[in-house]
Design a binder for these strands. Structure first.
Lengths: 354, 354
DNA sequence: CAGTACTGTGGGAGCGCTCCCATGTGTGAT
DNA sequence: ATCACACATGGGAGCGCTCCCACAGTACTG
């Protein structure tokens, strides 16, 4: 550990006390003005504001944080290395949504990467050091201990997606079930007979829900679910390829594939192509995420779009709500304990692959 | 020693004072241990560290910041909207470099966007509120008032690139002059006779230096600089297209183009192609930045690579240095006042377009 | 006209640290 | 043994705020 040194630069800034003296009022009154308390007369408020402007006063945040036990900052925790964060448009959209929601508040956003274990450790320290009032968690892996850690600590937190049907943290998710159901219903409406699905890792709750949606759509169409058409994979392109190869062998009559992610769909497409199947003439293909992959695929691919920016906005809104009313829990549908679980609708974007 | 569980973080956290009581020492001693002061005996240090571990003590940063007048945080200020930030690999590399340099320190990184005026205003407040010890400025526009603002305030700051030949802030730049000179020398060596250049906005210092490098390479090769071959543009693809179209009209004999950025080179390529010029047979093309554009162009394009990650590392190193030794100025080449101006070498990456 | 209920205001008491001075306590030289 | 001077240590004095209690002033009640 290194020795710390005082780090002072440039001249002293005016303090609350100085503003108070300048305005001829007490310290408390200036504080009230700064914090927008209604218990200040118009005259006094004007005088104080003039003094603030004249001295160029800006409150010292460290002091506010210490005295008020709050920081006016929230952290967006990304349990990924920087590179992946920048590579995926998902994060960009989330950050944008968060930024929009935050613009109307006094909160500052801290972007925190926790890709390596070392970074995770520092993060835990950081959060414990009470540098933020709340945490937004995105892209959480199933085995990540961070959410539980946060929950135990009582730190307000909102998670994107749910870890299970009984998520205990406040969460914002997209309607994976509905999105998948719509996609498959679309394939049914297009007259496809043998509709297969390639799933993501089923220990990821969202992947499970997409599979559930697939099943529901078939049942609603009065069809039976043929388990031979359900191909488990792992969200990767290679997984998509492999699952598709096996599928073609098992069920050469397949005429539609609903993939649980665009990336897996991309793998599927490669195998379908090299097997001589035309898209969409022989086999229709639908993905999930509506990422750049879907738009740039040849042919452009039908995919389920998640309202990611809106998710970012809603996460932020819920987090701020939770910070404002700590410990408050909202009644769930069943009226039992639990924090809010917000689910936003997805939209099917139809393109030429189906 | 009993391996009692560190108390969970819920509720009140232990304070310095409590740790001191637990270890049977004074407050000051615990502070010294935490801050790595050498003036503590081994025995005492061990006792304190045990108490810290047992209580799960983590220092309160707000209190530290207030008492010590420092925050252990630096801000990376990006005067761009989020979208562009994520879109450009430049930023990703910078952040990565910064992260590497920071990993060995206690500093936390704050990512701050200041794309809109509103965000700029908040940023100024933020900095004034003493939330950070220093600022890294990247991608600063020529007319941005922020650098001057920071300089006036005395806040330690490091800028990427220079705003002019006499940059007054500490800066880290790549050798635009040398990179351009190498690129053009390479074209000369390839036997090209009429070498044109498409420049970026010349009020951007880096663009000017690239043009200077172009000229120097020609002079060094014993050639005259033909001003008809110098095409001013604006860093955009459209600008590259337009400049190239005019160039072809003015000087149909052109057999090489050095563009001041890959994006402009991409525009140039389109026009050259549609004019029936083959690359590299008829016209050689060299870009600047070595971005994804260069690698994925058809044919893959020769380009000047900037050591962006290293720039991020060096910026961070210099900033921390400046924070540690406030007000210190390093002697420039002329022995006059001025902060360090670091210039890192560029490398020409030769591909098939030249 | 006392009694009650406000509203507006001042300022004490911390928040949890760091800084620094005063006070031990041990070492070596004389 | 005596002095000098290290080093180790305890704790007071803030850092600049927010919180909250006390009190003055004003405006209604009955």
């Amino acid at each position: 550990m290194t020795t710390r040194q005082p780090r002072t630069w440039s001249g002293r800034r005016p303090t609350l006390e100085e503003v108070a003296a300048h305005a001829g009022v007490g310290r408390g009154t200036v504080s009230r003005v700064i914090n927008g308390s209604p218990r200040v007369s118009e005259r006094t408020r004007a005088a104080v504001e003039a003094a603030i402007a004249e001295l160029g006063y800006v409150p010292n945040n460290a002091a506010r944080a210490l005295a008020g036990n709050r920081t006016d900052a929230i952290a967006l925790v990304v349990p990924e290395p920087e590179r992946r964060f920048f590579a995926e448009p998902y994060f960009s959209d989330i950050v944008h949504g968060v930024g929009i929601a935050l613009a109307e508040t006094e909160f500052q956003l801290l972007l925190t990467f926790a890709g390596s274990d070392r970074e995770r450790q520092r993060l835990a320290q950081y959060l414990a050091a009470q540098r933020v009032d709340g945490v937004l968690l995105v892209s959480v892996h199933a085995d990540d201990p961070l959410p539980d850690l946060l929950e135990q600590s009582g730190m307000p937190a909102v998670i994107s997606g749910r870890r299970s049907a009984e998520e205990t943290l406040t969460s914002v998710d997209s309607d994976n079930f509905g999105g998948a159901r719509d996609a498959v219903a679309h394939l049914v409406a297009r007259g496809r007979r043998s509709i297969a699905t390639i799933t993501g890792r089923l220990d990821v709750y969202g992947a499970q829900r997409r599979l559930d949606g697939y099943r529901a759509a078939l049942v609603e169409a009065g069809r039976e679910v043929d388990e031979e058409l359900v191909c488990p994979a792992d969200f990767t392109e290679e997984g998509g390829r492999q699952a598709t190869a096996e599928l073609l062998e098992r069920r050469p009559d397949v005429d539609a594939v609903f993939a649980g992610s665009d990336v897996m769909a991309s793998g599927a497409r490669q195998v379908l192509r090299s097997a001589g199947r035309r898209i969409p003439q022989d086999v229709a293909l639908v993905g999930f995420d509506d990422s750049a992959i879907a738009r740039h695929m040849d042919p452009p691919m039908t995919s389920v779009r998640q309202p990611i920016e809106e998710m970012g906005r809603e996460m932020t809104r819920l987090l701020i709500e939770e910070i404002a009313a700590p410990g408050r829990r909202r009644a769930g549908a069943a009226g039992r304990r639990g924090r809010e679980q917000l689910v936003l609708p997805n939209a099917l974007v139809v393109r030429e692959s189906s």
